[in-house]
């Protein structure tokens, strides 16, 4: 479900992941690499939109909080973090992971952070879907009368 092989995929995963899990897995990854902060973590809002009748013209539904951050590694690789909510450390970690994913540390990161995170989130999603499935109505018809 969560595809961590593309940049879009890992950025989307990091945006939606629980902050405490990201910080925990990041701490296990090792020392923070040398980097420069190009844009310090900044909290802002994004206007979420819906469509009239689900498929028609867009309308503004309301905003959500988002935190973004941009870093550059010593080698010059730039990473962006866009994460839901207001956790600045989460945004900075996401930016660092995004930058490192463009380097030769890619496979380590996948193994230590992205894949476990994706598995956990997939697990949570499946559990919820399973609970919903248990509340699905199984209709049956009672036949009454002689004919």
């Amino acid at each position: 479900m969560f595809d961590v092989s593309t940049r879009q995929g890992w950025m989307g995963l990091l945006a939606r992941a629980p902050s405490n899990r990201v910080s925990h897995l990041w701490a296990n990854f090792g020392p923070v690499p040398a980097h420069e902060t190009l844009r310090s973590p900044e909290i802002g809002a994004v206007m979420v939109r819906g469509r009239a009748g689900a498929t028609g013209a867009p309308f503004n539904l309301g905003e959500m909080t988002v935190t973004r951050c941009t870093v550059s590694l010593a080698c010059g690789t730039i990473g962006h973090g866009y994460v839901q909510g207001r956790n600045k450390a989460h945004a900075e970690t996401a930016a660092l992971i995004d930058a490192l994913m463009q380097t030769n540390r890619q496979s380590d990161l996948r193994k230590v952070i992205l894949e476990p995170l994706a598995a956990e989130m997939e697990d949570a999603r499946t559990t919820r879907a399973a609970k919903a499935a248990a509340t699905k109505v199984e209709f049956f018809t009672l036949v009454r009368g002689e004919d």
Binding site: A45, V46, A54, E63, V66, R128, T135
Partner: peptide, 23 residues
């Protein structure tokens, strides 16, 4: 509070046809 936040932009319309439904 929301008036204090900078607006990063507008999202693409959500796709409710792709919802992970609880109900």
């Amino acid at each position: 509070y929301r008036t204090t936040l900078p607006r990063f932009g507008g999202a693409q319309p959500i796709d409710t046809g792709n919802m992970a439904c609880d109900r």
